[in-house]
């Protein structure tokens, strides 16, 4: 509902600004700490119009963890520069590898780790996340948010499934393996309330919750 009447945001384009900010925020939720290097690959409409639409500052503001209506959004690039973060924006000529005209692929890196997040902005500020590379896992969700990612054992998986069943329907779930580590993906039927996520995070500190509308 509030992705149709909303989001409240800094202009000028919901798919190219608020949506880009949301893709950035997804990367922020996964990376959790400050990156030293940011590389953004744009495809199709994003590649052609990212400058005019303010996509650059929007996506950086998301990576910095700002909400789309944060007054700092238009100044995000300057703020990131001041924080010593290297930024590269690449307008790709190839078609989007995740098959949507509003595609951005974000690479974040610091001394400890690196991740890759491929997202697309499907209109009105709503996004999908279609690929995540983290901790050796190559995660390929169907796209729609919210998505919960939980690294852990099979016992953890059973516990999480039980906890989630009290909260909402799990529309899809996947198991990923990287060496001897496991990760479970849960696609959820509704946004979790902030307090519900906090409760889950109390026992599973490594979890990543990617919410739909910020």
């Amino acid at each position: 509902m509030f992705d149709i009447i909303g989001p409240v945001m800094i202009g000028p384009s919901s798919s190219h600004t608020a949506g880009a900010c949301a893709i950035g925020r997804a990367a922020h939720s996964i990376f959790k700490t400050k990156p030293t290097d940011i590389v953004i690959h744009y495809y199709d409409s994003f590649a052609k119009t990212h400058k005019g639409h303010g996509t650059d500052y929007a996506i950086i503001s998301g990576i910095l963890g700002f909400a789309p209506d944060d007054a700092r959004v238009p100044y995000a690039i300057k703020l990131a520069q001041d924080a010593g973060i290297n930024m590269t924006f690449i307008a790709e000529v190839k078609a989007s590898p995740i098959h949507h005209p509003n595609t951005a692929i974000i690479e974040l890196k610091n001394q400890q780790k690196s991740i890759v997040v491929a997202g697309c902005s499907i209109g009105g500020g709503t996004i999908e996340i279609r690929e995540i590379k983290m901790d050796g896992f190559d995660i390929k969700p169907r796209g729609p948010l919210p998505i919960l990612l939980v690294p852990g054992s099979e016992a953890d998986h059973h516990m999480i499934t039980k906890l989630l069943s009290k909260l909402t329907e799990v529309t899809d779930q996947k198991h990923y393996q990287a060496e001897d580590h496991n990760l479970y993906e849960y696609d959820l039927d509704r946004q979790l309330q902030h307090t519900e996520v906090q409760k889950l995070a109390a026992d599973y500190g490594q979890l990543v919750y990617l919410q739909g509308v910020s």
Partner: peptide
């Protein structure tokens, strides 16, 4: 670049 409510989009 002011604040708006996107309904359904900002444009």
């Amino acid at each position: 670049m002011g604040v708006v409510c996107a309904t359904p989009t900002a444009g």
